[in-house]
Amino acid sequence: MPVSTEKMVKVFGRPASLTEARFTYCPGCHHGILTRIIAQTIDELGIVERTVGIAPVGCAVFAYLWYRCDAIQASHGRASAVATGVKRANPNLIVFAYQGDGDFASIGTAESIHAANRGENITVIFVNNQVYGMTGGEMAPTSLVGQKTTTTPDGRDPALFGYPIRFSEMIAQLDAPVYVTRQALYDTKRIMDATKAIKKAFTNQLEGKGYSLVEVLATCPTNWRMKPTEANKHVAEVVTKVFPLGDLIDRG
């Protein structure tokens, strides 16, 4: 039966701020979803012409390819410092740093904490997948106790390597940050929640309120040696026990 398109309404499409470039991410990885959410947020806020994205080192190093906004590729761990330089040099720009757990919570610890402590008016997206993805699956500061990685082949032993670091909780101890939240992407509800959180984090910056951090629990099916469905289940049932979801502070 022929279908009339006259009364059809487009409810879902590619965000205008997302380029045609293909993602370099593995199947089942959450980086792609997150990238789309950010592009959609930039669209909704109408800020693509004044946004500067800071790409990290790691799997998201190509982030500069995927958005139709200006971008800067930063050295490993220093995206929050680079974002500081950009925002201070031109406060009219909307600046977001996109950083993985090794980047943000290990090598960049000082830059991450001090950008937050200065209350820089920036938005930081912190992707926590508990593993170094690009270099081959080594232990991350966020790796779970017992988690097998290429550098903890017998599982992370806290006696040797300490415990998964709850970095957002550390940031939430500071006086300056406006909004610190932990989100996930393992099902539709979580994706909707994360989308709201990211929009809020950008809106805070637009309104000049200050520093916002959105930690996103993400999967790495390749290095976790799991199917995408298993990886989603693992986040929901195991990872969120160590890294509880929800707002840590909201002074917006």
């Binding site: 500067v52 800071i54 800067i72 930063a74 050295s75 220093r78 410092a81 680079v82 974002a83 500081t84 330089g85 950009v86 925002k87 201070r88 040099a89 031109n90 720009l93 000082a110 830059e111 904490i113 001090h114």
Partner: peptide
């Protein structure tokens, strides 16, 4: 800055702008 690393990377950001 919190360190020399941070300072030079802030320079990198400002220079980019």
């Amino acid at each position: 800055a919190e360190s020399e690393l941070a300072a030079i990377n802030m320079v990198y950001g400002a220079a980019s702008v």
